[in-house]
Design a protein around this nucleic acid. Structure first.
Lengths: 229, 229
DNA sequence: CTAAAAAGAGAGCACTGCTCTTGCTTTGGA
DNA sequence: TCCAAAGCAAGAGCAGTGCTCTCTTTTTAG
């Protein structure tokens, strides 16, 4: 009986795959997705570039792996920040998640750009990324749900032409919540990334200087907008 | 006396420069910024790639020219949409500008990605782009200013720790407006691009289906958020 | 023990941005 | 009017890229 369940080869494959991703992530963090080079990764790992194709069939596949990891890293950061204030009020929890997203983005700008910036060259995200991408959204939904089951939500009514879509979204995302809240939640979710992206991509340069209080206030208003109080 | 003021050479230079930009814009619209190739542009124009460097010293310089054009194109679209409803109420004018931004983005996805997506490979936008980039922002400020001088604005107060930054932004952007409105305006400006970007970059896939009413409602709420009524 | 599968190495293709040198043409001053 | 200077096009070439193909070696599994 062997101590390496699937054999040494399978074990090595896992390690090499991880090493490739690590080195790729290093280059991504250092230079951005566009300058991520398979040949450079292979060179740094002491292997020849063609050998790398045994692990990732193309550059896009490597990027996809990095994208999923980035979504999960962001999701974990947001979840950790939320859990740290799980006892606090719903607005405070909402703010904590938003600030965690911003902090993660500022700490991993190229990875953030990879997942929330413009998609890389002709690249379209495969279905595989969906579960990881949803983590932050699910967190926000959970906060709003807690508030709904606790102190309740205060939402303004929706226009008539939005009722069908609002009901559809609600059925898909959170059937137990009022459509007004779900609609506001989805919009706030997108708006959060507008705030983060503008800061990260330099649109706030020479416009907003002291960004923490600005961001905090903005996401607090988002929280009120979804009905939290 | 010559009919070509600066000589035929200067005239030709202008035409060739325009032809290069046109062809580059075509490739940008077709394939995205990352696949924009100087060699392909030159090839399509029947010139050799090295000749192109007489007009643009590098690929980044070409991209910068396209970025400025894109900002101006977006700005013009927004201004035209605004002027078409200049007599309507402030909220309606605000919505018109936002919807013009969205429509332009959906019609020019790669150009939108170029200016509001993640900045291209290690590329940092030069100062030259600033005036063009400000056009939509100035339009939104103008609407809020009109409202302020007309029916007035209704804003909620700011937290104390935001006062310094809010006053600074107000002095920079619109000294005649209340800091509460300016702060909300800047945040809404960023949030608008969050809504547009999420739709454009596929984050709304399988989440929001009927996007026009959703977007319209969201930006109407933004309008109320900056104090318009 | 052996056939099959997996992995690495290397050469090569087509492409990229960019530089440099070589000629030709237009320009502007003496 | 002539002539040097500047502007421009063309071609070759460099270093780099993603990716494919073939060949050899190593490991696995029957």
């Amino acid at each position: 009986m062997s101590s390496t369940p699937q054999g040494a080869r399978a074990r090595a494959r896992i390690e090499v795959t991880a090493a490739i991703k690590d080195e790729a992530r290093r280059q991504l963090a250092a230079e951005g997705a566009a300058k991520l080079s398979l040949r450079a990764v292979a060179r740094e790992l002491g292997m020849v570039s063609s050998a790398l194709y045994r692990y990732f069939p193309s550059r896009d596949e490597l990027l996809t792996a990095l994208i999923i990891d980035a979504y999960n890293s962001l999701g974990e950061a947001a979840e950790a920040a939320h859990d740290a204030v799980a006892d606090a009020g719903h607005v405070r929890r909402w703010i904590a998640v938003c600030e965690a997203v911003r902090a993660w983005a500022l700490g991993h700008p190229h990875e953030y750009a990879l997942i929330y910036g413009s998609p890389v060259p002709g690249y379209t995200a495969p279905q595989t990324t969906v579960p990881a991408a949803a983590r932050v959204g699910l967190l926000l939904i959970a906060i709003v749900r807690d508030a709904h089951q606790g102190p309740g939500l205060t939402n303004s009514p929706l226009p008539a032409d939005l009722h069908p879509e609002a009901d559809r979204m609600t059925a898909d995302l959170a059937p137990d919540l009022p459509p007004e809240a779900v609609t506001a939640l989805v919009a706030s979710w997108a708006q959060l990334y507008g705030l983060v992206g503008f800061e990260l991509f330099g649109q706030f340069n020479r416009v907003v200087e002291d960004r923490e209080p600005f961001f905090r206030h903005a996401v607090e208003r988002l929280a009120h907008g979804v009905g939290l109080k």
